[in-house]
Amino acid sequence: MTKTIILTIVTLTALGLLLALVLYWVAKKFRVEEDPRIDEVEKALPGANCGGCGFAGCRAFADAAVKAENLDKQFCPVGGNDVMKNIASILGLEIKEKAPQVAVVRCNGTCEARPRINTYDGVQSCRVKASLYSGDTGCSFGCLGCGDCVAACQFGAIAMNPLTGLPVVDDSKCTACGACVKACPKNVIELRNKGPRSMRIFVSCINKDKGAVARKACSNACIGCSKCAKVCPHGAITVENNLAYIDFTKCKLCKKCVAECPTGAIHAVNFPVLPPKPAAKPAAPAAPVAKPEAPATKPAETEVKKEANNE
């Protein structure tokens, strides 16, 4: 009995030592010399591995950053300027600061504004739907509503609003990694500067059809009337292919265009709400803040216009 126990202990110990030696030898032999700064940079990164920077993951980004001569071509959208400053100090380089950005849904074709003209019966994927046809509404540009962007977002920052059938971006969670921009086959989503206190103005429509056609398909569409471009004192608005676009680098948030737009296609979000509603709304659901306001005033307006058209 004792013999067995001793034998067991001896054998196992010998085996353990032998294997340890083998491991030691292997570790020595196959050791890969790596710049220790790669680990440091990787540690400084958020570690989301989202690919928003254009690299395969945070490690790949760190590797490239260490090898690069300057950081002009690299930016971690998730970490933003703070993280980039850290990395720059590790590597002894300079960075150009970037304004924080956020994903913006440029379609306001809600179920009421943009009636469904047929029923899509295929797999719930925008990509499949877009490759099949122009969509189940009269607008062949807008959101298809199958939620590819929601599935693409790793940060849980996008959700479909079942009432409007449109995706809603949560500003506080959005890291501007751009995954949703890539996922959207219609290019509805754009990364725009977040703006001071998240205030920003944008055209929530990408319909390039002529005004009447766009209007017929969706009552919230931009009809390319150019009123906004004329009223803009900063030259931030251009109208091309029957569609207005606001350059966020030039926009000074004066809101003149918002008041001018006849269809309510220009959205101003996160602006402090003046009385009669004094309490500031939570900043999180940015887009819906604007949406409930729009239909509240608009139906009457559009009806009047429709009648006018009929005559």
Binding site: G122, V123, S125, R127, V128, S131
Partner: peptide, 9 residues
């Protein structure tokens, strides 16, 4: 399962 829808993509 919408096999072909996905396979086509």
């Amino acid at each position: 399962i919408p096999l072909l829808d996905n396979i086509r993509i």
